[in-house]
């Protein structure tokens, strides 16, 4: 378990970490998620001992490590830009921690082979980092960090420098690896999809504070505040309410829409179809409030879209099947009623 208590860190007058407390359970994979500059790396580096805190404590596995240098914290760290030892072969890179610990040669050789096997670099022992692709370099860095059997594995945007496809593959692979190895892992990312995809828990950071900490499910379904809500997954604002775009139902007939809405106790929004974008088997329908002109969008499956037979310019009635609450951050004006604006009547 990693415990961070009341951590503060300032650069000049700028607060990079502002009273951060966090408990990361043993054996879990936790993501630190937040926009650029929110203090994710600072927090991770403070756990690693690469950054000193101004105040607060860090405990790893019950031991107070606040004053310990990184060498003695029992960690493995993976950097965004690999930090490969350029003048060493893949084998020597992975063996580094073990050879520092003066392990017998035979033991080192066995362990390195084993790890290179795990990360899929078995045939690459004698290459140099310059001869590897980015994805391979990062897997080497991971093997290097795992070689010393760390108590915790800390990854700072490990896949940030890779292209989308490789990144997807690697993060699924990391998840499977974690399920095998069970080392407590903290992953920094600014990509909400990555966090939702791999993490058991997500801590959402913003301006040096933790906005919410919980399972992906919790954060997605019950966001604590508008920031978390709009940072995790996209949202559509309609009628002063916020809903996930896939929780919007588009209905062609007004009567039907109002009947459904009144039984569900929600309001119906009148909108015009602006654009249809097909993303794999999902369809994104870009809409505009007929009266206010506010843009928003809904996400349908291809089947639903086909059944509705939508065309650009069509008028539809939208009702949320589930809302996340009202929109305090940016309230949208309530829709005018028919009495105020008779032209709305069809």
């Amino acid at each position: 378990m990693i415990t961070v208590a009341a951590a503060h860190k300032s650069y000049g007058t700028f607060k990079a970490l502002d009273d951060v407390s966090l408990e990361i359970p043993s054996g879990s994979l936790t993501a630190l998620l937040g926009p650029s500059g929110s203090g994710k790396s600072t927090l991770l580096r403070a756990i690693a001992g690469l950054e000193d805190l101004d105040a607060g404590t860090v405990m790893i596995a019950g031991q107070d490590v606040t004053r310990l240098p990184p060498q003695r914290r029992g960690i493995g760290f993976v950097f965004q830009h690999y930090a490969a030892f350029k003048h060493m072969s893949v084998r020597d890179n992975v063996a580094f921690g073990l050879s520092i610990r003066k392990r017998p040669r035979a033991e080192i050789a066995t362990r390195v082979d084993e790890l290179l096997d795990v990360v899929g670099l078995a045939g690459f022992q004698h290459r140099y980092p310059a001869q590897l692709s980015g994805g391979q370099r990062q897997r080497m860095a991971l093997a290097r960090a795992l070689a010393v059997d760390p108590q915790v594995l800390l990854l700072d945007e490990p896949f940030g420098a890779l292209d989308a496809k490789v990144r997807d593959d690697l993060r699924r692979w990391l998840r499977r690896l974690h399920d095998e190895v069970h080392v407590t892992t903290v992953l920094v990312t600014h990509d909400q999809e990555e966090a939702l995809d791999v993490a058991d828990q997500i801590a959402v950071l913003n301006e040096g504070r933790i906005e919410q900490f919980g399972s992906p499910e919790e954060l997605y379904e019950r966001p604590a505040n508008p920031f978390v809500m709009s940072f995790l997954g996209s949202v559509s604002r309609l009628n002063g309410e916020i809903a996930r775009p896939h929780d919007l139902r588009l209905i062609r007939s007004r009567q039907q829409a109002e009947a459904e809405a009144s039984s569900a106790g929600v309001r119906v929004t009148d909108a015009t179809v602006e654009r249809l974008v097909r993303l794999g088997f999902e369809v994104r329908v870009e809409l505009r409030h007929t009266s206010t002109g506010e843009p928003f969008f809904a996400q349908l499956t291809r089947t639903e879209a086909t059944a509705l037979d939508l065309q650009v310019g069509d008028r539809v009635w939208v009702r949320p099947t589930r809302t996340l609450g009202s929109d305090q951050a940016a309230p949208v004006r309530a829709l005018p009623t028919e009495e105020e604006f008779p032209a709305l009547a069809v």
Binding site: V118, R176, E180, E193, H246, L279, E282
Partner: peptide, 18 residues
């Protein structure tokens, strides 16, 4: 990796949200 290589999954922009 530890598990046999993944079955290719359909390329979705929003896999996790369905």
């Amino acid at each position: 990796g530890p598990v046999a290589s993944a079955v290719p999954e359909p390329e979705l922009a929003t896999t996790t949200r369905s």
